[in-house]
Design a protein around this nucleic acid. Structure first.
Lengths: 159, 159
DNA sequence: TAATACCCTACTAGATTTGTCAAGTATTTA
DNA sequence: TAAATACTTGACAAATCTAGTAGGGTATTA
């Protein structure tokens, strides 16, 4: 339950690759596709959405690619997912576009809203910068052959 | 994003109605259907699943219906949803049945796992008893015409 | 002008969701 | 025992969503 679509998942991973080029090296779709094992055509759709949302900008022509418009520490996972999949809406009646015709008398309404807010709050605290740091940790740990420490670090990452 | 299917939503609402009959008044599908505005046929499927899972038991014949097998304070929303929709698995590769073929080197893996654990923890703290109390609060507030207070109460309900 | 790389729309196979329908079985009450 | 109530099960199907593919563009650089 509560699955994220591949669009959202790939989107985060793509943004992570773009973040690696921050602040000035454009990262091409081809490079992202190779590193993250996702098709170029599918990534085009995803990155196009993120560009229109203003999270990244594009540079055309040879040597071109995508650039973060803000520092990695200022782009949260919540923002990326919201652009690709819309706002968190556990029950469809919570979606601002639809609305709920039986809010009063509906005992689950506040429950879903609380859960949604919790999820949103958590994803808002994690940024691309955290993912970059995590990767450094991961590589570090692999070198020293003590993977275990990462898990502890990751577990403590949300408040 | 992160929608719950209607099966899960209706399931929780149905369990809430069954909880109202606790400990000894069987609640019929027809009654649940009327109160929660869900079709009888669809509810049959849902309740059948919950019965096989051992969350409720059934009484046949006239005056029959469904009964909670444990007290409302001991049945969490997490348990209900898990039976109807499977475990929380933000990314499909987190599903115990599938497994992830690129765990190492995948920066998002620990992120999705952390989120999943947070969601599970939250839903495990909310029980049917909380929903029953919430309804009493709701009715109380409606009487006194100060709906606003509920929202505050509900917002503070999770840790 | 050739090569690179982004840009955009349309389309579709397959899975999932959200139910309905029909034909049972079990239990109680008159 | 017959009738009524109510749970039980499995098949089926329309609608929607997902997860892409395909194929044409346009902009920039060397």
């Amino acid at each position: 339950m509560l699955k994220l679509s591949t669009k959202g998942q790939y989107g985060v991973r793509a943004m992570f690759e773009v973040a690696k080029g921050y602040p000035d090296r454009p990262v091409s779709i081809k490079e992202i596709a190779r590193r993250q094992e996702v098709s170029v055509a599918y990534l085009e759709q995803i990155l196009s959405t993120l560009r229109r949302a203003g999270l990244i900008s594009s540079v055309r022509g040879p040597g071109g690619g995508y650039l973060l418009t803000h520092g990695p520490a200022h782009i949260s996972i919540a923002v990326i997912l919201r652009e690709l999949e819309g706002p968190v809406s556990i029950a469809s009646c919570m979606d601002p576009e639809e609305g709920c015709h039986r809010v009063e008398g509906c005992v689950t309404h506040t429950l879903w809203r609380s859960l949604g807010e919790k999820i949103d709050a958590f994803l808002s605290t994690i940024t691309l910068d955290d993912l970059l740091k995590d990767e450094r940790l991961l590589m570090d740990a692999a070198e020293h052959d003590r993977i275990v420490t990462i898990k502890r670090a990751a577990a403590g990452q949300g408040g």
